[in-house]
Amino acid sequence: MKHLAGLLALMAWGTARADDVQVAVAANFTAPMQKIATAFEKDTGHKAVLAFGATGKFYAQIVNGAPFEVLLAADDATPAKLEAEHRTVPGTRFTYATGKLVLWSAQDGYVDQQGQVLQTGHYAHLAIANPRTAPYGAAAVETLTRLNLYDRVQGKLVQGENIVQAHQFVSTGNAPLGFVALSQVYRDGRFTSGSGWIVPANLHAPIRQDAVILARGAANPAARALEDYLKSNKARDIIRSYGYAL
C-alpha cells in the first residue's frame, strides 16, 4: 500500500512537471528572469515560457487576445489598468522589483559619476527607449526635463523600440551613450562593462515593476507557482544582484 502511495505521488509530481506558463516579461528584466526561470523549473518542475518586450506593446497584445498567463511589467500602471479592466486574477498583483535608470556608455571613463557629460553636449546621439511604450524611456525623458536638458538634446535622441534596443544602440557604438536599465549593465555591485551614472531617484518617478496573473492563467497551477517563486528568497537574491531595489 505504501509502495502504491509513493507511486501515485511520483505520478502527480510528474504531471506537475508538465505545466507550462506563458509569461510576458518587460525587456529590462530579461537577464534576471532567464536566471529565475531556470531555477524555477529546477525547483518546481514547472516551466516558464518567456517572451520579452515593451510593456505598452504587451498591454495591446493582451487586450487583443495574446495567450499570456502572467505579466511582469516595467511599471505599476499597466498591471493596475488590466486589473481595473477585469483582465487579471484578483489579488495577484504585486511589486516584484523597483528599477533603476542609468546613463551608460560602452566606453570606459566616458560617463562621469555625476553625469556631467550630459551637460557638455559633446555627443552625436543619446539613446533612449520609446517613452510612449517603455517606462524606462518615460523615466529618461522625465530626467532630461528635470535637468532642463530635454529641449537641448531632443535633436540628438535616438529611440529604441524598447530598452533592449536602446541598450543595443549604445553597446554597438551607434550612440556613444544612452539611458538604459541598470540591470542590463550591472551585476553584483559593479558595472559589467563601460561607464555609467546611476540616475538619482528624485529625478524621475519610481519605476515600480508589478507582476500579475492574467485571466488566462487563472486555472494554471504553474502561474500561481511562479508568482510564489518570485517572492522567494532565491528569486529576490537574483533580482537584487542585477541592481534592482526590493
Rank of each mutant, 00 (worst) to 15 (best):
A97I: 04
T145P: 06
G178V: 10
T172K: 10
L82P: 05
V158D: 00
P176A: 15
G160Q: 03
V170E: 00
D112L: 02
R93P: 01
H125A: 06
A140V: 06
H122E: 12
F94W: 15
V102Y: 02
L101Q: 03
P131W: 13
Y150S: 02
F94G: 06
E83S: 14
P131T: 09
V180M: 13
Q116T: 08
L101I: 03
K81D: 11
E83D: 14
G160Y: 05
L182V: 10
N174R: 15
N130I: 07
G109C: 03
Q154K: 15
T133N: 10
Q154I: 11
A84K: 14
V141A: 13
H125F: 06
G155Q: 01
A129V: 14
Q168E: 13
A97R: 11
L147W: 10
A138L: 15
S105A: 09
G137M: 14
A106C: 08
R93H: 02
Y186I: 02
N162T: 08
N162D: 15
P90H: 01
A138I: 03
H125D: 00
Q165D: 13
L182W: 03
E85C: 12
P131Q: 11
G160T: 07
T133P: 08
V185N: 05
G160I: 04
I163E: 04
V180P: 15
H167P: 05
Q116E: 10
Y110N: 00
F169A: 05
